[in-house]
Simulated scan of single mutants.
Amino acid sequence: MHDQATILHADLDSFYASVEQRDDPALRGRPVLVGMGVVLAASYEAKAFGVRTPMGVAQARHLCPQAIVVPARMSAFTTASKAVFAVFKDTTPIVEGISIDEAFLEVGGLLRIRGTPTEIARRLRAEVRERVGLPITVGVARTKFLAKVASAVGKPDGLLVVPPGQELAFLHPLPVERLWGVGPVTSGKLRERRINTVGHVARLGEATLVSLLGAHAGRHLHALAHNRDPRRVRVGVRRGSIGSQCALGRRERPFEEVEATLAALVDRVTRRMRSGHRAGRTVTLRFRFGDFTRATRSRSMWTATMQTATILRTARELLAENRAMIAERGLTLIGVAVSNLDGDGNVQLELPFEALHDEDKLDDALDAVRDRFGSSAVKRAASLGHDLSPSVPILSD
């Protein structure tokens, strides 16, 4: 752990909704929902009525009838994100991006040239507002975990510094849900036993938490409750997985349409894999259902690959195995990710070589056309008619 609070967690406020309000003055100060079938992001004016992500737009409009619903504009969000990250990199060379709208920054070596971490954070917020026109909250602490908690507590449009020596006094009164990894299931287990705050968790022994939650989760939460997080801010970290997802809305869709959407997602993911020279072994499907529950299904292949056809075949098998569950519960979002990535893009060939070579040639040909004429210049027949423009992350700030 640092002796000083030098880690910044910078997190844009209701990013997608803030971009819409920035670009359309008529939306400013009004409740805005981004997403047509499912709420991908909500402005703070909408959140005041109880709107949360992910939530069906119909339910959100019931809670907030005056809400204005706008479609997701991924190109605008990507442009805004790049502009914000340019401010991050002008602030410090040590930037670890977490998602499209948040990053960790290490500013410990900048005291003589940029000032204290608090001064740097204050200036960072002003520059993002001035150069990009968006509100951002910054948390400052000695650990990455606590800096992220501080930014969450400091929202919206705030700056919260946790001074060294006062970390546990700040952390322990917070609800258990502030601990990383505490979702609805874990929260339910803890609250059933009247373990309601981080301080309650901290007072339990590690062995008790392990017996209650399992070895990994128990040790993990015990460490966080005592603010033990040795991770440093790292630059140039390669992704552990490459994925994409698509919000489907709440209308019932034929299974064939879900298959076509999956094919388009796999096409997108494998193109990114080939662009980054990353082959992968494990295919994971993510589902979100009409009752807002979620499920994941994974399968590992014998060898790493970046071939569209091979990965799509595995993804389709997983989808088919869960067809009954999808029909029963209604699918509102599907995502696919490939993990266990090989950093050098090395692929172990299998027999028959000729068939694999033909698939590689098809992938190469499609990639070349898209590189020259744009990503929408050609589509695989399996995904025709299925626009993936809603394929954006669900934001919950």
Rank of each mutant, 00 (worst) to 15 (best):
374 G>H: 12
258 V>M: 03
277 H>F: 13
361 K>P: 03
225 A>G: 06
218 G>I: 01
48 A>C: 05
190 L>F: 00
6 T>R: 15
225 A>E: 01
147 A>N: 02
239 R>P: 08
144 K>M: 07
191 R>C: 07
262 L>W: 02
138 V>R: 04
259 E>Q: 15
2 H>N: 13
216 H>L: 11
272 R>Y: 11
102 E>D: 06
33 L>W: 08
219 R>G: 05
92 T>S: 15
40 L>S: 06
144 K>A: 03
379 K>W: 14
12 L>R: 03
53 T>A: 10
228 R>Q: 15
393 P>Q: 09
127 E>Y: 10
101 D>Q: 04
360 D>V: 13
130 E>T: 14
198 V>Q: 00
43 S>D: 05
34 V>I: 15
231 R>H: 14
74 M>W: 05
212 L>M: 15
364 D>Y: 09
99 S>W: 08
143 T>P: 01
350 E>T: 14
66 Q>M: 10
4 Q>M: 08
197 T>A: 01
95 V>H: 01
369 V>S: 05
88 F>N: 03
162 V>Y: 02
337 A>F: 07
1 M>F: 08
103 A>T: 12
319 L>W: 10
228 R>G: 02
117 P>A: 09
35 G>P: 01
392 V>R: 10
286 R>I: 13
261 T>R: 05
256 E>Y: 06
290 G>M: 08
125 R>M: 12
104 F>T: 06
30 R>C: 04
190 L>A: 00
380 R>D: 07
46 A>I: 11
140 V>C: 04
334 I>N: 01
7 I>D: 03
158 G>I: 13
